[in-house]
């Protein structure tokens, strides 16, 4: 059992996302500590990419802010290595295939594992292309998280059956970003996933309010992922963001407690 499974051991998991280096890596460090203190169960750390095709405007802008401040993969690795002495909850990277491939896939995965990361999410690597990274992930016991989308339909069984870590359930069509409504029939999607695998699943894309988090948790999913809403708080408060992010995460975690 990978460490990721621990995130789902105590009720519905709350999974926040932050873009590393937005506005700077010192602030990211403070935010990560705050996320753990506020009750996050697993953290997604975004490694910025110049052209994030699966992201809406909020996370696109965070990526560009981070890169224009000189953030690099190496600097993020160094930051994670440091923070790992204080932060014990599971953490996964969220980035794009080229960031891993260009670094040297083996060098990336080996280093990520050594500094204490538990897996990675690559939104531009579907089931058909996972072989690109899968053998290396297995070699280093590093989970490659699979995504399932509202359009997956007949693909759900195939993807879920081979999934590692947890299944990332994409709540809606389109890119990341806050949505006022989520209309996908997630209950039946989650049921199909559950029928194919024992690995936990968490829903992301478009979730920002405690009410949405509660509704998502009640579909039968094991966790809720929130990105853009947190990135917005960071964009607004910059270096002062950690305590505001903490407050927000507490309210979200509270909303799904006991479900």
């Amino acid at each position: 059992m990978s460490r990721i499974a621990e995130a789902f051991d105590h009720g519905k998991a709350f999974i926040p996302f932050v873009t590393c280096g937005d506005p700077d890596l010192n602030t990211t460090k403070a935010i990560i500590k705050e996320l753990q203190a506020a009750g996050a169960d697993l953290i997604e750390l975004g490694i910025p990419f110049s052209d994030p095709t699966a992201e809406g405007p909020t996370i696109q802008e965070a990526n560009l802010r981070s890169l224009s401040n000189g953030c690099t993969t190496d600097k993020i690795f160094a930051m994670v290595k440091e923070i790992r002495q204080e932060v014990t909850i599971p953490m996964v990277f969220m980035t794009y295939a080229n960031v891993v491939f260009s670094y040297g896939s083996e060098r990336f995965i080996k280093t990520a594992k050594e500094i204490g990361m538990d897996g990675m999410i690559l939104p531009d690597v579907p089931y058909e292309e996972k072989e690109e990274f899968l053998d290396l992930c297995k070699k280093y016991d590093f989970d490659l998280v699979s995504l399932i989308a509202p359009t997956s339909e007949d693909r759900i069984q195939m993807i879920a059956a081979e999934a590692d870590g947890f299944v990332y359930v994409v709540s809606s069509l389109g890119v990341t970003g806050v949505r006022s409504k989520i209309t996908t029939d997630l209950k039946s999607m989650v049921a199909k996933i559950k029928a194919a695998t024992d690995i936990p699943c968490a829903i992301g894309f478009g979730i920002s309010t405690p009410e949405q988090a509660r509704n998502m948790a009640m579909t039968g999913a094991d966790g809720v992922i929130v990105g853009s809403a947190i990135v917005k708080i960071i964009a607004q408060y910059k270096q002062d963001a950690p305590r505001y992010v903490g407050e927000y995460v507490r309210s979200m975690k509270e909303a799904i407690r006991g479900l």
Binding site: T53, D124, P126, Y127, E128, R155, V170
Partner: peptide
């Protein structure tokens, strides 16, 4: 080559 795209587009 290949198909390095989000799962959302795979069936399309």
């Amino acid at each position: 080559g290949g198909q390095y795209i989000p799962e959302t587009l795979m069936n399309a």
